[in-house]
Design a protein around this nucleic acid. Structure first.
Length: 870
RNA sequence: GCCGAAGUGGCGGAACAGGCAGACGCGCUGGACUCAAAAUCCAGUUCCCCAAAAGGAGUGUGGGUUCGACUCCCACCUUCGGCACCA
C-alpha cells in the first residue's frame, strides 16, 4: 500500500511492508519472473490543508516537499522500485482518471436482475415516467445512478466553522479545541456501494486473504435475512398510514407489544399527539445533537418518549403504542421496529425502563419455560402465536413470511449494515467533482446536473487566496469566484463545490501503476490483462475494511463495464504487523514520592515513572522494582508516537548501521504479520551479522578492500556443501512462505559455519551471496564485485539445491523409555526400522533404564525416534 | 458484550500433516587477543538440585485423547486488534 507522505517523514513502520515486497520482488526477478514493483503517493488529505490554513502555504508546495522527503528516504533503503511507474494522486494527469472513474460511476445504474452495473443510457424508463417529460426522466435516472445526492447528517462545528470527519469528533466535541459539534443535514454526494453488497460479500470467498480480514469485511457488510412488514399506524389527526419495519424474527410478531421509531423518522410529527408534542420535540432536538459515537457509546441506558398514538399489529389486529427512541437507528432497515421485549435484549431493557408489557412467544423447548428476568433471544419453539404454535423458530419464520406475503402485509427481505458511501468533503485539498449544476434565470440551481466533458478533464483545483473555512458549512471552493461559474450552451452553470475524499485516489492506484503515463486511458487494456490481478498486496491492517472495500467496489464497477478483466483486484493480501516502540518499564509513585502498586493501570493521582532496564527484575510472571521487590513494574511496548517520544527515525538507523541493517532487522524481528516491539540492540545484532559476512569474504585488515586470501578455488568439504544446499533449501522455501525471519536465521547459521573455516571455497560462497542479495542488496552487490563479477547480481539465476547433497552421513536418533529420553543413537539416515529397534534395545543406557523389565511395546519412527514402553 | 489473533527462557522469537522444546538473534557469564579499552574470536547460558555426573520440573491455567501433546479436543484466564443498541 502506498503511503500518505506526511510532514513527519518515513516511520519505521513503512519500510516493514516495503522491505518484504522488495525482497520478494528481487527474489522473483532472480527466478526469471517479470516483476512489477511500484511506488507512489496518496497525497491528498487533511494535514496539508490544515497547514495551509495556518500558514497560507499552498498544499501543493507542502505536498511536494513531503513527497521529496519520502522519496529520498525510500530510495535510501534500496528498494528496487521502477520509478518510471511512480504515481501521485494529486497530479492532474492522475486525478484526471479519478474524475473519469467518478463520471463512470455517475453514469452507471445497478441492474438487479443482471446483477451488474450498466450504463445509465440503458436504464429502461417506465412509460408513465417518459410521458411526464424530460425533467421526470432525468430525475428517474438521477435517482438510480451509483453516484447520487442525498441529505445526510454531517458533523458541523460552528466554532471551527467546518465540517468534521467522524474520527475528528470525540464525545460530541471537536478533537481540536473541544468545541461543540452538532449533526446537521447537508446535501452530499453518495456512492451506492450497497448495490454491490452481495457481490462484495460473495467474492470474498475467492480471494487469498487472511481469514480475519475476510471476517471483518463480512461483519462490516453485515448481511441479515428477515422480513419487512407493515403495521397500520392510526394518525391522531384521523386516517391511517403504513408503518414499515424490518425484523430478523418475524416469528415473534405475536409478541410485539409496542413499536419504536428512530427520532428522525419522517412519520414522527404526524404521529405525535398534541399533549406529547413538546416532549417529542425536545427529545428529537437532544438526539440530533448527539454524535453517532455518543449515541452508541457506553450509554446503554435506554431513553425514549411516547408519541401518544398507536398502530395495529398485522397478524392479530392488536393496538400497540408507538414510541420514539434513539436506540433505533434511522439509517438501518426502515428506521422503525416492532418491539418484542420478551425476545430481544434492547427491547427488553426499554420495556423494563418504561413499564411496557412483555409477552413470551418463544419457549426454549416445546412446553418449556424461558428463564425469568431476562429476554430469551435464542431459537426455540413458538407459543401463544396462533398458527405458529409448536413450530421451531426457523420453520416459524418461514411460515410467518409466507403468511405475510400471501396477505400482502410483508415480504422476505435481506438487509445490510453496510451504508452507502458518503463521498463528498467540504475541503480544498481533494479532487474536484467534474460536475456542473444548471442555474436558472432566477439565479438558483434548477436541479439539473451535467458532467464536464471527458475531453475537458482533468478539472483542476482553483487557486485560492486563503484556505480558511468560510464559517458556514460550505466548501472552500466557493471562494474561487472566477472558477465557480461556467457558461455552456448559452446557459449559466455552477461547478460542484465539494471535493472527493482521500479514498478516491487510493481506490484505483494499483491500476495506474500499470501504465502511469497513458493519456488515452487510465490503463492500456493489454497491460491490464497481462498484469492483473495484483499477486501480492501488503499493507497495514488499519485498511482492512474501508480502503479494501472501496477499492473492491470501484474495481467491480470497472469490471462490469469491461474496463478490467478480473472481478477482484487483489488476489493475495498480507497484513504487516505494527511496530511498537522499545519496551518501557513504568512504576508509580504517590504524592509523597513513595512507590505504590496501583490497583489499575489508569489509577489517577499517581506519578508514572519510567525506569531504566537495570532497575527492574523478573519475579514470577511479572516485573518488580529491584530496590523493592514488592512493587510491581508495568513492562510494555507502546505504539510509537511523538507524545511518548519513542519514535524511531529510519534516517538515524541508516546513518548509524546502514540501509541493509535496517532492512534486515525489520525482517528479523519476527513474523511479518505480528505486532512486535522495536529494539535498537536487535539492529546492532543484525549489523554484526552483516559485518561477519563481510569478513568471511573480505580481508578487513588490508589497506584496500579486497577479497580475503582465505577465499579459495578448492572444492568445499562435504559438510560445507551439505550446509550450503540446506541453506539454499531453507531460504528458498522460507521466501515462498514469506517467513523472512527464519530465512535470515538460516543464513546466520551458514555464516557461523563459514567463519571458522581457514579455507573458504568460492563455490560455497557465491551462491550464498545470491541468497543474501534480496535481503541486503548493497552488501551483496559489493561482495559480488569483490568476487570478480563485472555486472549486477540482480538478474543472476537463483541458486538451486541438490536434494542428494542434503543427506547427512549419520543422524542422531533419541531413544525414549516410557516417553523419557534415555539415550541417543548415531545411525545412518536410511537405517531400517527393525535394525533401529535392535540397536536401541541393545544400548547400554536403555538396558540400564529397563532394569530387567521386558519391553511391552516398541514404537519406532525411522529417522525420528524410538520409544520403548515397559 | 460480540468477532478475530495470540500467550514458549531475562528479551525478540524457532519448532506445530503429534515425535529430541528453546533454532537464530539480543542480553548476561567466563575466557582469548590488548598496557588498557573498544571491536573481534572461543565457550557457556530454561528453571530447581549439584563440584560434576545423574536426577527432577517445564510451552498462560485446569481437564481430556495418545506410546508420545507447544502442536489435537473441552472449559477457563490474560493480552492485543476490530466491531459495538444493525432489530
Amino acid at each position: 500500500m502506498f503511503p500518505y507522505p506526511s510532514g513527519a517523514g518515513l516511520h519505521v513502520g513503512h519500510p516493514e511492508g516495503y522491505t518484504a515486497t522488495d525482497i520478494l520482488a528481487r527474489h522473483k526477478r532472480m527466478r526469471g519472473f517479470a516483476v512489477m514493483h511500484p511506488m507512489g503517493w496518496d497525497a491528498f488529505g487533511l494535514p496539508a490543508e490544515q497547514y495551509a490554513i495556518e500558514t497560507g502555504t499552498h498544499p501543493r508546495v507542502t505536498t511536494e516537499q513531503n513527497i521529496n522527503t519520502f522519496r529520498r528516504q525510500i530510495r535510501m533503503l534500496g528498494f528496487s522500485y521502477d520509478w518510471d511507474q511512480e504515481v501521485d494522486t494529486t497530479d492532474p494527469d492522475y486525478f484526471r482518471w479519478t474524475q473519469w472513474i467518478f463520471l463512470l460511476l455517475h453514469g452507471t445504474w445497478y441492474d438487479t436482475t443482471a446483477k451488474k452495473g450498466r450504463p445509465i443510457a440503458a436504464l429502461p424508463i417506465p412509460p408513465d415516467v417518459a410521458a411526464q417529460g424530460d425533467a421526470a426522466v432525468r430525475k428517474y435516472r438521477d435517482d438510480r445512478r451509483l453516484a447520487y445526492r442525498a441529505e445526510v447528517p454531517v458533523n458541523w462545528c460552528g466554532a471551527l466553522g467546518t465540517v468534521l470527519a467522524n474520527e475528528e469528533v470525540i464525545d460530541g466535541k471537536s478533537e481540536r479545541g473541544g468545541h461543540p459539534v452538532i449533526r446537521m443535514p447537508l446535501r452530499q454526494w453518495m456512492l451506492r456501494i450497497t448495490d454491490y453488497a452481495d457481490r462484495l460479500l460473495e467474492d470474498l470467498d475467492a480471494v487469498d486473504w487472511p481469514p480475519s480480514i475476510q471476517e471483518m469485511q463480512r461483519n462490516w457488510i453485515g448481511r441479515s435475512e428477515g422480513a419487512e412488514l407493515d403495521f397500520m399506524a392510526l394518525l391522531p389527526a384521523g386516517g391511517e398510514s403504513l408503518l414499515r419495519v424490518f425484523t430478523t424474527r418475524p416469528d415473534t410478531l405475536f409478541g410485539a407489544t409496542y413499536m419504536v421509531l428512530s427520532p428522525e423518522h419522517p412519520l414522527v410529527p404526524a404521529l405525535t399527539i398534541p399533549a406529547q408534542a413538546d416532549q417529542v420535540e425536545a427529545y428529537r432536538q437532544q438526539a440530533s445533537r448527539k454524535s453517532d459515537f455518543e449515541r452508541t457509546e457506553l450509554a446503554h441506558e435506554k431513553t425514549g418518549v411516547a408519541t401518544g398514538s398507536f398502530a395495529i399489529n398485522p397478524v392479530n389486529g392488536e393496538r400497540v403504542p408507538i414510541w420514539i427512541a434513539d436506540y433505533v437507528l434511522a439509517g438501518y432497515g426502515t428506521g422503525a421496529i416492532m418491539a418484542v421485549p420478551a425476545h430481544d435484549e434492547r427491547d427488553f431493557a426499554f420495556a423494563v425502563q418504561f413499564g411496557l408489557p412483555i409477552r413470551l412467544v418463544v419457549a426454549p423447548t416445546a412446553g418449556g419455560a424461558a428463564p425469568e428476568g431476562e429476554p430469551f433471544t435464542q431459537h426455540g419453539v413458538a407459543m401463544a402465536s396462533g398458527f405458529l404454535d409448536g413450530l421451531p423458530t426457523l420453520e416459524a419464520k418461514a411460515r410467518m413470511i409466507d403468511w405475510l406475503e400471501k396477505e400482502s402485509k410483508g415480504i422476505r427481505k435481506v438487509n445490510f449494515k453496510l451504508r452507502d458511501w458518503l463521498f463528498s468533503r467540504q475541503r480544498y485539498w481533494g479532487e474536484p467533482f467534474p460536475l456542473l449544476h444548471e442555474i436558472g434565470t432566477d439565479g438558483e440551481p434548477t436541479g439539473r446536473i451535467e458532467p464536464v466533458d471527458i475531453a475537458d478533464l482533468p478539472l483542476k483545483l482553483p487557486e485560492l487566496e486563503d484556505y480558511k473555512p468560510s464559517g458556514r458549512p460550505e466548501p472552500p471552493l466557493g471562494k474561487a469566484t472566477g472558477w465557480v461559474e461556467v457558461e455552456r450552451d448559452g446557459k449559466l452553470w455552477r461547478r460542484e463545490l465539494n471535493t472527493m475524499p482521500q479514498w478516491a485516489g487510493s481506490c484505483w492506484y494499483y491500476l495506474r501503476y500499470l501504465d502511469p503515463k497513458n493519456s488515452q486511458a487510465f490503463c492500456d487494456p493489454a497491460k491490464e490483462n497481462y498484469w492483473m490481478p495484483v499477486d501480492l498486496y501488503v499493507g497495514g491492517a488499519e485498511h482492512a475494511v474501508l480502503h479494501l472495500l472501496y477499492s473492491r467496489f470501484w474495481h467491480k464497477v470497472l469490471f462490469d463495464h469491461g474496463h478490467v478483466t478480473t472481478a477482484e483486484p487483489f488476489k493475495r493480501l498480507v497484513n504487516q504487523g505494527m511496530i511498537l516502540g522499545d519496551v518501557e518499564y513504568t512504576a508509580f509513585r504517590d504524592a509523597t514520592g513513595a512507590w505504590v502498586q496501583p490497583a489499575t493501570r489508569d489509577a489517577t493521582g499517581l506519578e508514572a515513572v519510567r525506569l531504566p532496564e537495570d532497575q527492574v527484575e523478573k519475579k514470577g510472571d511479572h516485573f518488580v522494582l529491584k530496590a523493592d521487590t514488592s512493587i510491581r513494574v508495568d513492562a510494555r511496548a507502546n505504539k510509537m508516537s511523538k507524545a511518548r517520544g519513542n519514535v524511531i527515525n529510519p534516517d538515524t538507523v541508516v546513518n548509524e548501521y546502514g540501509a541493509d541493517s535496517l532492512r534486515l532487522y525489520e525482517m528479523f524481528m519476527g513474523p511479518l504479520e505480528a505486532t512486535k516491539p522495536w529494539s535498537m540492540r536487535g539492529v546492532e545484532g543484525v549489523y554484526r551479522f552483516l559485518s561477519r559476512v563481510w569478513r568471511v569474504f573480505i580481508d578487513d585488515r588490508a589497506e584496500e578492500v579486497g577479497l580475503s586470501p582465505q577465499v579459495s578455488s578448492e572444492a568445499p568439504e562435504a559438510e560445507t556443501l551439505r550446509l550450503l544446499h540446506h541453506t539454499i533449501k531453507r531460504v528458498t522455501e522460507d521466501l515462498d512462505a514469506m517467513r523472512f525471519n527464519t530465512a535470515i536465521a538460516a543464513m546466520m547459521e551458514y555464516t557461523n559455519h563459514l567463519t571458522p573455516l581457514v579455507i573458504r571455497p568460492r563455490t560455497a560462497l557465491e551462491p550464498f551471496v545470491l541468497l543474501l542479495a534480496p535481503f541486503a542488496p548493497h552488501l551483496a552487490e559489493e561482495l559480488w564485485q569483490a568476487l570478480g563479477h563485472g555486472s549486477t547480481l540482480a538478474y543472476e539465476p537463483w541458486p538451486v539445491f541438490d536434494p542428494a547433497l542434503l543427506v547427512a552421513s549419520t543422524i542422531e536418533v533419541p531413544v525414549q523409555v516410557n516417553g523419557k529420553i534415555r539415550a541417543r543413537l548415531s545411525v545412518a539416515p536410511d537405517i531400517g526400522k527393525d535394525e533401529l529397534e535392535q540397536l536401541a534395545l541393545a544400548d547400554t543406557k536403555v538396558i540400564e533404564n529397563l532394569a530387567g523389565r521386558a519391553p511391552r511395546k516398541v514404537i519406532v519412527v525411522p529417522g525420528k525416534l524410538v520409544n520403548i514402553i515397559c
